[in-house]
């Protein structure tokens, strides 16, 4: 089943059309990379899925998006939708709480109370993002003390802690050094089992390294979506070729 499905989807900021007539599907258990020039609407596309784009002034949308088979407008409350769709942003954000409280921020809201459950969630999620060994002795310390790469992994752990089925990542590595980037890429590949991961990236090498499929967006239109290798090596559209050819010089 497709985890996320766009159906004739359009968005506007005020009078300005951003995404136009998007029809695309994202499968479970796979990583899809989204590439495209700056300002083409990649972030808007991600934020449409969990309905945080609506928080912006002047945002309007037409058409529909289905998450796990259900229209995002039909979710009784956005809370349920956003619990199923985790999101990680470009800037690593640590909530001004302890490391542990960052991970448990969502679960506590959703009613997990037993101490042993909370401990278990903390450990499991921090292990999933390969942060456990680095922070297990200072779980009660402020998360602000972590490095940028650690914060970004913490952000992923925080999103995973509410057990989403879709994980959206908006240029998660753009402010990180190569080592942290490598770590995150590795853990995303592991997480892809059981999750639908959609990652926006400006790093075409990264898209090639980790994604099963890649989608190319230009000026708000989906030009092409294909298995990653095909898209990079023999794209159907000359526009795609033009864009990815940068990769091969």
């Amino acid at each position: 089943m497709n985890a996320v499905e766009f159906i004739d989807f359009n968005t506007f900021y005020g009078p300005k059309a951003i995404l136009q007539n998007i029809n695309v599907e994202f499968a479970s258990n796979s990583i899809t990379a989204i590439i495209g020039p700056s300002g083409c609407g990649k972030t808007t596309l991600l934020r449409s899925i969990n309905r945080t784009a609506e928080m912006e002034i002047g945002f309007k949308s037409q058409g529909d998006i289905k998450v796990l088979g259900k229209s995002i407008k039909e979710y009784k409350n956005v809370s349920l939708l956003r619990r199923r769709v985790g999101m990680v942003y470009q800037i690593p954000v640590a909530l001004p709480l302890s490391i542990r409280a960052n991970v448990l921020f969502g679960p506590k809201y959703y009613g997990v109370k037993r101490h042993s459950d909370l401990e278990a969630i903390t450990e499991k999620c921090l292990r999933q993002v390969a942060l456990w060994d680095e922070v297990k002795d200072r779980l009660k310390r402020p998360a602000a003390q972590l490095s940028g790469g650690q914060k970004q992994r913490l952000a992923i752990a925080r999103a995973l802690a509410v057990e989403p089925q879709v994980l959206l990542l908006d240029e998660p590595c753009s402010s990180l050094d190569p080592a942290s980037t490598g770590l995150i890429e590795e853990l995303l590949t592991q997480l892809a089992e059981g999750l639908c991961i959609i990652i926006v990236t400006h790093n075409l090498f990264q898209a090639r390294r980790i994604s099963n499929e890649t989608a190319f967006i230009l000026d708000g239109q989906l030009i092409e979506k294909a298995p990653t290798q095909k898209l990079f090596e023999s794209p159907d559209s000359p526009k795609t070729r033009g864009f990815v050819s940068g990769l091969f010089g």
Binding site: N50, T52, M55, V78, S79, L80, L81, R82, R83, V85, G86, M87, Y89, I91, V93, L95, P96, F105, G106, Y109, A155, R158, A159, V162
Partner: peptide, 13 residues
Amino acid sequence: KNYRLVANSLGVS
């Protein structure tokens, strides 16, 4: 503002 964005995307009130 990022705190609000992050918290919102977790679906909390």
